[in-house]
Structures are given as structure tokens and as C-alpha cells.
Nucleic acid binder design. Structure first.
Length: 267
DNA sequence: ATGCCTAACAGGGTTAGA
């Protein structure tokens, strides 16, 4: 079973690429980020025509996440808990959608995550929002882990976990994606018992999932690894392999991110 | 080391991204 995450940077601008990639790679579940679309304008029919069920959590202009799946989810939850204004500020941004899917061995829980960027890091709002969002994610992950079921939290984390996950660590030293507080918050997720699927299966250097559109970053392989599949022990035990669909970055009108895939045996 | 690209929304410029 192939479960993928892809920040497509605009589903309407990327619909041809998305259809091509779905046809080529035939993932079972896809976690999309930055659909940049309201739910009503998501190109649902074009995706359904390829045999996928579509669940979206969009908003106008930017952000927005979705779940595409070959089987319909049994349950869907929109929004990361803790954003309703009861305990902390209301979160107006569409960055989280979670589904429960039936598999031969039971049920798996899969979330599409678009973690806040947080830059500029000295902004009075943006970086604190990122850190608060990470703490909300930690709390929710902790609650999910108590279910002791396969859990896949997949998405654009906007976190460079380690120095070797970027081309030039010095260039990212003061960036919200790589600040010590950001990395510490990511380690707190790992310390709950979540496994970084790519790093668990591939110790290659220069393993990236994002290359900036600017300054010839792709041509120079000046990338960063910020798209992650984080797994509960029950999911990590079933992980067979991972792959990064680097070839899509060379396509016409590419997203600046490429799909990251985990292959699981849930038989 | 931001704004060298890109997308969306608007409407030919601004916001946001990482």
C-alpha cells in the first residue's frame, strides 16, 4: 500500500501534473498540501475520473489540504484540534485533514499536514503561531498514539530536522524552518514514538523534497528535506520502503516540492 | 540572504511562500 504526501503549490495550476503522477505512481492514499483552493473549486471530477475519492479542507487563496484515496475513508476530521478558540486563539487556516481507512488488518489513520512556515522568525505573530501549532500537533499525536493503531502523519512540516537535511546549514541558521526551537519541537514529536519514515529507510546524503524556484536551486541541487511521513510504532512496523519522486521537479511548471511515498504492508 | 520565482486574487500590484 502506497501512502504519499505532496505539497502541490496550487491544485488548479498543477492539475495536469497531478493526474500524470497519479497515473504513473498509482498511490493508494495521497495527502496534498497547498491546494490554494476553496472546496467548491477543487478539480474533483478530474481526480475522481482516475478512481480516487476526494476529501478537501480548503480556503480562499492559500493553504488548504486534501486526502485522495482509492477507497472512501470511514471517517474524516477537518482542522487540528485546539483551534476552536476555547483553549487559545481561533485558527482560521486550513492546514489539517485526517481520515480513517479500512485495510485488511484493521484500520489506519492518515493525516495531511501543512505545518506553518513561521517566517520571518522575528515576526510577532508568524513564528509563535508555528510553535503553538506544533504543540497542538504534539498533543493530538499523543492522543492518537494511545489508540495503538497505525498512524501516518504526512505532510509539509516546514521543518529541516537535521543539518544534513539541507544543502547549506549555515544559510538556514536563522530561518524558522531550522531554528533550534523548531528542531526541538520536531524532536518532541519523535520522542512521543513517531518515526521519520524516510530517515528510517534511507541514510543517503543530499536527500531533499523541496527546491526553491529562485536562484537556480534545482539546477544546483540546493534543496531541503521538509516533507515527512511520521509513523506510529504500529505503522513503522509495517513500513517496507520509501521513495522521493524527485523526477517531478524537472517537469514543466513543477511544484517546488516533490511527492514523498511510504510503502506499507497492511495485509 | 532575501524576494533572484510562482500562484492566487485582483485587475496590471499585492500577499504569501520557505
Amino acid at each position: 500500500m502506497k501512502i504519499a504526501t505532496w505539497n502541490i503549490n496550487g491544485v488548479k495550476a498543477r492539475i495536469d501534473s497531478l493526474r500524470q503522477w497519479l497515473t504513473d505512481s498509482s498511490p493508494d492514499i495521497v495527502c496534498l498540501q497547498e491546494i490554494k483552493s476553496v472546496d467548491e473549486n477543487f478539480p474533483r471530477l478530474e481526480i475522481e475520473a482516475l478512481g480516487y475519492h476526494v476529501e478537501t479542507h480548503g480556503q480562499k487563496g492559500f493553504n488548504g489540504v486534501a486526502l485522495l484515496s482509492k477507497t472512501k475513508p470511514d471517517e474524516v476530521m477537518r482542522g487540528l484540534p485546539g483551534g476552536d478558540g476555547v483553549d487559545g486563539p481561533v485558527d482560521e487556516q486550513s492546514r489539517y485533514i485526517e481520515g480513517v481507512f479500512s485495510v485488511p488488518s484493521g484500520a489506519i489513520r492518515v493525516a495531511s499536514i501543512y505545518l506553518p512556515n513561521g517566517n520571518p522568525a522575528d515576526d510577532p505573530v508568524k513564528y509563535p503561531y508555528k510553535l503553538a501549532w506544533m504543540e497542538r500537533l504534539r498533543k493530538h499525536a499523543q492522543a492518537c498514539l494511545e489508540l495503538e493503531e497505525p498512524l501516518i502523519l504526512a505532510g509539509d512540516y516546514n521543518v529541516i530536522p537535521e543539518p544534513h537535511d539541507c544543502f547549506d546549514p549555515a544559510a538556514w541558521a536563522t530561518d524558522a524552518l531550522f531554528l533550534p526551537q523548531t528542531r526541538a519541537a520536531f524532536r518532541r514529536l519523535e520522542n512521543l514514538g513517531l518515526t521519520d519514515a524516510v530517515r528510517a529507510t534511507n541514510d543517503a546524503i543530499k536527500l531533499y523534497s523541496f527546491w526553491d524556484y529562485q536562484a537556480g536551486a534545482w539546477q544546483k541541487n540546493n534543496g531541503i528535506r521538509i516533507d515527512h511521513l511520521m509513523l506510529s510504532p504500529e505503522a513503522a512496523d509495517r513500513l517496507k520502503s520509501t521513495s522521493i519522486e524527485k523526477h517531478t521537479r524537472a517537469w514543466e511548471k513543477p511544484s517546488d516540492h516533490v511527492p514523498v511515498i511510504g510503502v506499507f504492508d497492511f495485509a
